[in-house]
Amino acid sequence: MIPPNIGQLPPELDLFAAIFGVFATIFIYSFLWKENPLSRAVEHLFVGLAAVFTLAFMYDAALSQAVWGTNRLAEGNFIWIIPILLSLMYFFFFSKKYFFLYRYPVSIVAGVMAGMMICGMIQSNFLAQIQATVELPLVGAGVWEGWPPAGLNSIIMIIGIITALTFFFFTWEHTGALGISTRIGRYFLMATFGSAYGGTVMARMSLFIGRLRFLYETSYQDWFWAWYLVPIAAIIVILVALWDRSKG
């Protein structure tokens, strides 16, 4: 079983983790300058670690659900044998003769997800959104007061929702009134994408700022090591890039 505090390193490894963190950060960022052997090495390490992490957690989660964590089988809860057997059927993919058997678990999982999703979506994404649109304030006290008035916002939202929906009509030609509506819908979609783009820029910058704060602010026994390690890592990157170039 995976220990509960797996995310925490023993204190004696703090310095190692710090040095490794700085070097990995700089090596990965060096890709922005040029693809080089160091960025490639960290990339492969990253991919390998992620594969192991996923494998270990999925294995642990699956078995602790069914076998050791809760002792469901030992408690006589034999219904768990069905999902375990179904999941084992995935492995028939590697058999030439019984190849087709792997399709059963795939179909069941896809079917269950389709059912669950339709139930969830029809209520939360479809009906609740229709309800919220229907109840947008258009008349009443205070709706057209102040700037921008709530009523104006409502009208913009209603037009936006309806015209954007018409953009996704596939089996009717986008001509005439429908053509005008889809064109307006397209502008609404583009405005939405623009605002989403702004949000994403913010997120990306946050991640970059987070990394920089890691470099600038993390200390080990009052020693701000990043200040010394970053130039060393940068020099290593430059040397390796030059070496890589001389190799042709």
Binding site: S124, A132, T192, G199, T200
Partner: peptide, 17 residues
């Protein structure tokens, strides 16, 4: 949430969900 996902959350925020 990360700022990336927030525009996608707005319809649920304005609908009170």
């Amino acid at each position: 949430s990360t700022a990336v996902s927030v525009p996608g959350m707005m319809p649920f925020y304005s609908a009170g969900q």
